[in-house]
Design a protein around this nucleic acid. Structure first.
Lengths: 212, 212
DNA sequence: GAGGAATGTGAGGATTCCCTCGTGTATCAT
DNA sequence: ATGATACACGAGGGAATCCTCACATTCCTC
């Protein structure tokens, strides 16, 4: 495949309401097309057609395939982050076990409501969201842990957050490729992993969190 | 990209010594090319050229790009499995903590000695090793756990093995994308994850394994 | 309502890549 | 040696994609 030489071209940002509509239409089209036939097989013209737009209109806003995929990933990441932002609010009132449980359950729900996720996880690195976005996510998780266990250091929280994020990513990967009847068990398994990891790593018991 | 309609064509197996040499040359070439420029950018002609072979010779043995990548993955998987086969022998003599430590250390060494691994992990699903190979790996890990803790049930060992395998895969992904100075810490972190997971999941303490 | 900017359009150029195929050479069995 | 089979070669067909570009249309501003 011809790989564009520029690493990551910026999408042109729309200036009119009409343009914004187009962009969301195009992103939705990209989502369904990619979800349906995968990243590799998804072509720019298929995306344009699905959006009811001309190929030229697509290129107006997204100079290449990696770019629109990246935009879609960014959108997903933002929604992911937003979801956990809500959880952060209640983090300090939660039992550690409940926190872990909520964390995992939210993830699973996210997978279930974002049809293109499997295909996006399968897409090449060149389509990943920009570093800034990923940093936001890491910090969200860091903040979440700090809210729940205020006594750990910032750097430790960062490390825990990074690892937690990747564990959740792993769960996603596993979850989407598993037959439905095995999913429940894996979810349980990951709750156990996270919980025992936290218990081992945040020694003095749930310093935050309400005992019942 | 044009995606071949056939799901997964078989490579033609060489019949002469000359052919076997060619195949290993081609696989080595594929390894270095893919490691160097990534799966997407790697073209069949680049691989052939690197191997000092004509494009026709390449297609003699590997009918398409997914196929040769799959073959490379299969080779990697076999080496991976072989590595853990050795560990299985000493598994019952090892402390649980030592077992986990060896498990992780081996993984890291594997990453360091297999340059194409990052690119392969980034390659699309269509290039994954056949199910049979993956099954072998799962069973290797299952056997490993059973050797170490004979008292757990087969099905439980299977679940633990599957999860362990995926945790190790996660470590790989994280490891390759991290700057070297952060790698040590992540390695430590994953040892802790695995160990605390085992301790939580295999309750009665190290049933196998020698106490010191 | 005039002018400029943003957006829409789609045929087609330019590339690139995958893969075939006809032909030539090595290898091996008998 | 001789036939048969495996392997080597590489120019080029075929196919598909990416992306441009010149021109239409809509929108907004003053």
């Amino acid at each position: 495949m011809r790989v564009p030489s520029y690493t990551s071209a910026q999408p042109k940002v729309p200036q009119q309401k009409r343009g914004e509509r187009r962009v969301t239409e195009l992103l939705e089209a990209a989502e369904t097309v990619i979800a349906h036939i995968g990243y590799e097989a998804a072509t720019m013209s298929a995306i344009a057609e699905r959006a009811g737009a001309a190929i030229g209109s697509l290129y107006q806003f997204f100079p290449n395939k990696a770019c629109i995929t990246q935009a879609l990933r960014t959108e997903y990441a933002k929604q992911f982050d937003h979801m956990y932002a809500k959880l952060a609010e209640e983090a300090r009132t939660l039992d550690r076990e409940a926190l872990v449980s909520r964390l995992i359950d939210l993830t699973v729900r996210f997978v279930d409501t974002h049809p293109a996720l499997p295909a996006l996880l399968d897409a090449p690195q060149s389509t990943r969201a920009p570093i800034a976005i990923r940093k936001v996510l890491r910090e969200r998780f860091t903040a979440l842990l700090l809210a729940h266990s205020p006594r750990i250091s910032k750097s430790k929280a960062l490390r825990l957050g990074t690892v937690t994020l990747h564990l959740i990513k792993t769960l996603n990967q596993l979850y989407v490729e598993l037959p439905p009847q095995e999913r429940r068990k894996i979810v349980q398994e990951f709750k156990m992993i996270l919980l025992s990891y936290f218990n081992a790593r945040i020694k003095p018991g749930p310093s935050g969190g309400v005992r019942k």
